[in-house]
């Protein structure tokens, strides 16, 4: 698996945090903390990059950190953010329940939190929770999956990390559609923890048990790509593979015919929205929006894949 360029992008994101700031913008060089999940996934690199770029544009300095999906690490980082007297926190959190206390701690220290990508299971703690409509996105992917398979097929589902709310949300979204088709038969359902290499080995073993599989629907793109690679290696390139996220790697796989579709989470837009709302909140005391905001996902197939780059679909 080619993860080297991802590590490079991650390093870039972290370096960007220390860049200079135009003093004239309204942020006046105040510090905004940006904490995202594991930077070995380009998705989270994009969260950090988009939020960071918007913060710079608005005249803030930034502190970009990764919680690596580890609630304990996130907790230490929140302490750090409080000690550094950040004026706001943009957070892609490390667990819907585990992160409640961390956000409450920031709030108590006077740091408003703007959550992106993942919800926490409590309202009234964060100022904003802006998330992709994962469920809507999953139903789009499942609708395309069913269409590509002619409403009748034997398929396998690869699920994300069970502790992450989005793994369950997407799986429910998939099944909301798939289970309405009596001729869609699920042969197996396994978690590959969002990870490409894990999806590859899981797919290899699934193929041993079910050489007749016709479709694979995965909870994210990295797992879809891992499954696709295993299928290609086994000479089963005709199996329909659908992922979710809208990464550049998945886009290329769709264009090459190795994946049927992915679903774009407009995460760059979400991260930018969060930063804009943080800025407005700091200036006026209100974002002007409800706390919970959903941003719709977009289906990506061969017809529009070429317009996709860095989680943004060109008009």
């Amino acid at each position: 698996m080619k993860l080297t360029h991802l590590a490079g992008a991650a390093a870039l994101a972290l370096t960007a945090a220390t860049a200079a700031v135009p003093a004239h913008a309204q942020g006046n060089g105040k510090l905004i903390a940006i904490i995202t999940a594991s930077l070995n996934n380009p998705f989270f690199v994009q969260v950090a990059n988009a939020a960071d770029a918007e913060a710079k544009k608005l005249g803030y300095t930034t502190l970009v950190l990764s919680n690596d999906d580890d609630a304990a690490k996130q907790d230490q980082e929140i302490d750090n953010v409080i000690a550094r007297k950040a004026v706001a926190l943009i957070l892609d959190n490390a667990g819907a329940d585990a992160s409640i206390a961390a956000v409450e701690k920031a709030k108590k220290a006077g740091i408003p939190a703007f959550l992106v990508d993942r919800e926490i299971n409590k309202t009234g703690v964060a100022v904003a929770q802006i998330v992709s409509n994962n469920y809507q996105g999953a139903t789009l992917g499942a609708q395309e999956f069913v269409r590509a398979l002619g409403e009748k097929a034997r398929y396998v589902e690869l699920v994300g990390r069970e502790a992450d709310t989005n793994a369950g949300v997407r799986s429910k979204g998939y099944h909301d559609v798939l289970d309405q088709y009596p001729d869609m038969k699920m042969l197996d359902r396994q978690s590959a923890n969002w990870i490409q290499t894990e999806a590859y080995t899981k797919m290899e073993s699934i193929l041993q048990a079910h050489p007749d599989v016709q479709g694979v629907i995965a909870g994210n793109d990295t797992m879809a790509l891992g499954a696709s690679a295993a299928l290609q290696a086994a000479g089963k390139g005709s199996v329909v593979v659908v992922g979710l996220d809208g990464s550049n790697d998945a886009r290329d796989a769709v264009l090459a015919g190795k994946m049927d579709a992915t679903v774009l989470q407009p995460i760059a837009q979400i991260a930018t929205m969060a930063m804009d709302e943080a800025d407005q909140f700091l200036r006026t005391g209100s974002t002007g929006k409800p706390e919970k905001q959903l941003v719709d996902c977009v289906l990506i197939t061969k017809t529009n894949a070429s317009k996709l780059n860095n989680f943004t679909l060109a008009k």
Partner: peptide
Amino acid sequence: FEQVVNQIQFAQVSR
């Protein structure tokens, strides 16, 4: 969306 707790419930309403 404000009437429910999370997007799963909101999706259940739609379904």
